[in-house]
């Protein structure tokens, strides 16, 4: 694998910011009550991350090492303000449901962490690729948690009943849709209700614990197999 591709792919699984590095926990758990919110938060955080990585990489030779952290914070905070205003104008509903956690992107450890550990040392192209990889990793993790919580907690996905949502995926939906509908009919017939707990705060902690336990289990199994 070439090194540029490696810069991009490492953030997706191997150094996934949420599951492997355990960074940026607050937004990961707080806003993922639905798939839409998870994806929105992932992309908003990612946009700030990519922009700040590029700018810090550009400025890395003029930033004095002693005061680098305050400078990183100012750069990040400026981009957060831009994204905040942009989202308020363009996607007011999403902006409202993410609420406090948009300005709090400033203190998201993923962004400061990548600035310090990566962008301050590497060239602009690599930093941009690193930011994009981390964005993909952050977004899929949030989408996974948000999707599971939304299905289990409300029976919906992307704001519509989950079988309809699966059915509306192009191509695959023709197969998945009818299966999901049959399955949800069976669940309805038995009388299984959505578990509201999953969209309340405890559901986030427990789901995160179970997912991390599963990843740890797979890792242990792989190590035992080697």
């Amino acid at each position: 694998m070439s090194s540029a591709a490696n810069e991009f792919t490492k953030g997706i699984v191997r150094e996934n910011p949420v599951f492997a590095l355990l960074l940026g926990l607050c937004p990961t758990l707080a806003v993922t009550t639905s798939l839409k919110n998870g994806v929105g938060m992932g992309l908003a955080g990612g946009a700030v991350l990519i922009c700040s990585n590029i700018v810090i990489s550009l400025l890395r030779k003029v930033i004095p090492p002693k005061i680098r952290i305050p400078i990183f914070i100012v750069v990040i905070a400026s981009f957060v303000t831009i994204i905040d205003l942009l989202m308020e104008a363009q996607v007011p509903d999403l902006h409202k449901s993410l609420g406090l956690f948009i300005p709090l992107i400033v203190v998201n450890c993923i962004i400061l962490g990548r600035a310090e550990a990566y962008a301050y040392k590497e060239g602009i192209l690599n930093s941009a690729l690193d930011g994009m990889g981390m964005t993909v990793g952050f977004t899929w993790a949030l989408a996974l948690i948000g999707g599971i919580r939304e299905i289990l907690g409300t029976g919906n996905l992307w704001g519509m009943p989950w079988n309809v949502a699966l059915g509306s995926i192009p191509v695959l939906g023709n197969i998945l849709g009818p299966i999901a509908t049959t399955f949800s009919d069976i669940l309805g017939a038995i009388g299984i209700q959505p578990a509201i707990l999953m969209i309340l705060p405890p559901g986030a902690f427990i789901l995160m614990g179970v997912l991390m336990g599963w990843f740890q289990h797979r890792k242990l199994k792989m190590e035992a197999g080697l």
Partner: peptide, 23 residues
């Protein structure tokens, strides 16, 4: 603690149970 849950996973599940109490 089961090996797969040792460390952070069990801490998250504990926090989840505490959050239920705080509900």
């Amino acid at each position: 603690v089961p090996k797969a849950l040792d460390g952070f996973p069990i801490a998250f599940i504990t926090a989840g149970l505490m959050a239920i109490a705080f509900l």
